[in-house]
Design a binder for these strands. Structure first.
Lengths: 341, 341
DNA sequence: TGAAAGGACCGTAACGGTTCAGAACCAATT
DNA sequence: AATTGGTTCTGAACCGTTACGGTCCTTTCA
């Protein structure tokens, strides 16, 4: 029976025809994929776990790029891509247990996410993205710390010393406001923690007291958050000469807030982002470009040729500092001093 | 055993603890989701079939919106979303057979797509989007014909009689060039067929010989296609006063081509789109807005409360004609004549 | 003509859970 | 002491497929 469908060479055409005929007559709907998966131990799909609601995957430009790359790898291998619902509010780990997949890709979730723990307990290969190296599973990411350090050096070179920062959520709890040094250090999102630490290092080296730098956190990741975060920084210290955002989306929001206050970018204030999304490019944003599509594709490739117990691999992709037209020397001209006598 | 995990009330806490303990000691990784699916006849996921490569879902703005809506419905119901790979080049129906899902959403595939046929043969509920009403499964879509008719009336009112059309692929075979009336009529993509027929009706009523109107087809759906399609129309008839595109993406491409030729929009030439995507809105595109997100959400809802053999439902969502700043009266001023004596 | 070889076909045992019937046990009632 | 009622626990059947090994029949060659 199974052979009639899947292995036509194993039986005579005549019998095959007869089997298929009676199958149709009996209303047999074809082999059941679930039963097949049980028997063959192959689900033909990889699962994707991300920190946000499912639909976030289609709202955030960077996530979309990542998913496109991952989908590219999947279609090459002919496997499906299962988006696993993981509501960050509830600790609904059941969805991870219910997912019939051959492996997981975990995209930027907090270190202490119960869903991540649930994935790691399942006996399937896993690739984590934008996470610390767990040592036990494959990883792909970038050097967030180094990239942000480089961006900070650029701003320091321009003369900026009095800055403000708007970052994405640092932990699972909502904290829309200023961030204590403790919270920065203990941040559960690897990416944010490293970007902040890159900034802290560069500015500390340049003689800035990092503990005095206003760092504002936003739970939701969209332009409105960037705008309100920038507003909070500017309210606290109207003298800042640069707003450093840990994502392009936040930076674009910050620019609308600057405009609302009549501040010209970059003449009155410098704004920078991180990611290198299309909309940022169009706005001429100074940022760090990271290859989001390649990241997704690399994650898929890593997962799909998980060569039986090779040691866990760790891939770092290259980033590129993009100096756009949203960064310049601080108003009043430290720039002049820079090139002066 | 199963009870220890899923039905704690069915056994004493003491036994439960003992079972779980020895399970852990034996390295038991928890219940296997596939076996569970087999037994319970629930996969906990819905499948999405679309006409393009998997990654297309993350490249096309309208598709992204649709998926966001679908994901929204899925996360409400706590089900996963499985993207089924369906390479349009190869007739690889196996991926449909292998998908362990509780239902399918089929998004804008050609009438004669073998993947669609394979889905319909599977004994699971199905919702088709942007497809003709099959009578046997649920459907959600818009009145493509009526919406395009309305857009055409707007252009006719402005005085346009000499027009050109750029449309998306009409069938599974690649035909990057002019479209015969036969091919228009026999188009296998419901959406494109209806949009063209809405145009044909309106312009025929206005005294235009539709068979003389240059209609150019493009297989790939991106801005480059819109640009080259527009070029082909303008090469054939440089006198056209309006370029009607069957999607915003094509229209944006057409506008770049117009700019390249030094034609000002709308003064020298009118360009219109269809969909109502963000980038079009920013460009002030005259278009038909359709609620892509709502469409996805409606499809998901329909699928997820498939109430046991109710008659197949058919949902039409409302569209809205958006008159932007890319449409105006034809150069040389039929507009004047229009308002003249 | 008989043995060996090969091909076509068929029956059965997992795969790993869930479910349900009924056994075993204990306590309370008649 | 026997019946009843209730709870906890055990075992077996079933979900639908694929892998495997065995039977049977046909062909080939000594």
């Amino acid at each position: 029976m199974s052979n009639a469908y899947n292995r036509p060479d194993q039986l005579s055409p005549e019998l095959r025809r007869r089997v298929l005929d009676t199958a149709r007559r009996l209303g047999y709907p074809g082999p059941d994929p679930v039963a097949r998966s049980l028997r063959t131990r192959k689900a033909g799909a990889v699962g994707l776990l991300l920190t946000e609601n499912l639909s976030y995957a289609f709202r955030d430009p960077a996530a979309i790029g990542f998913l496109e790359g991952l989908a590219l790898a999947c279609e090459d291998a002919g496997t499906g891509l299962l988006l696993v619902p993981a509501n960050p509010e509830r600790e609904d780990v059941a969805s991870v247990h219910r997912a019939g997949v051959d492996g997981f890709v975990v995209y930027s979730v907090p270190d202490d996410d119960p869903h991540l723990a649930a994935v790691l307990e399942r006996p399937v290969p896993t690739v984590v993205c934008d996470q610390p190296d767990l040592g036990t599973v494959d990883r792909v990411g970038i050097d967030d710390r180094g990239a942000m350090y480089e961006l900070a050096r650029h701003l320091i070179g321009l003369g900026h010393r009095r800055i403000g920062v708007v970052c994405m959520r640092l932990a699972r709890d909502r904290n829309d406001g200023f961030v204590t040094p403790d919270r920065q250090h203990a941040a559960h999102f690897h990416v944010q923690r490293n970007r902040l630490s890159g900034l802290a290092e560069a500015f500390s080296e340049a003689g800035v007291d990092w503990s005095q730098v206003p760092v504002v956190e936003r739970f939701d990741h969209n332009m409105a958050s960037g705008a309100s975060g920038a507003a909070q920084v500017l309210d606290r210290d109207p003298q800042v000469t640069a707003l450093i955002c840990t994502s392009d989306v936040l930076a674009l929001g910050a620019m609308t807030e600057a405009a609302r206050r009549g501040l010209r970018v970059p003449h009155d204030i410098t704004v920078t982002g991180f990611d290198g999304i299309r909309a940022g490019e169009e706005a001429g944003l100074t940022t760090v470009r990271q290859p989001v599509l390649e990241k997704g594709r690399a994650a898929g490739k890593l997962l799909l040729d998980a060569n039986e117990r090779s040691r866990p691999r760790s891939v770092n992709l290259a980033t590129e500092l993009i100096i756009g037209k949203t960064s310049a020397g601080p108003r009043g001209g430290v720039e002049e001093r820079w090139f002066g006598p």
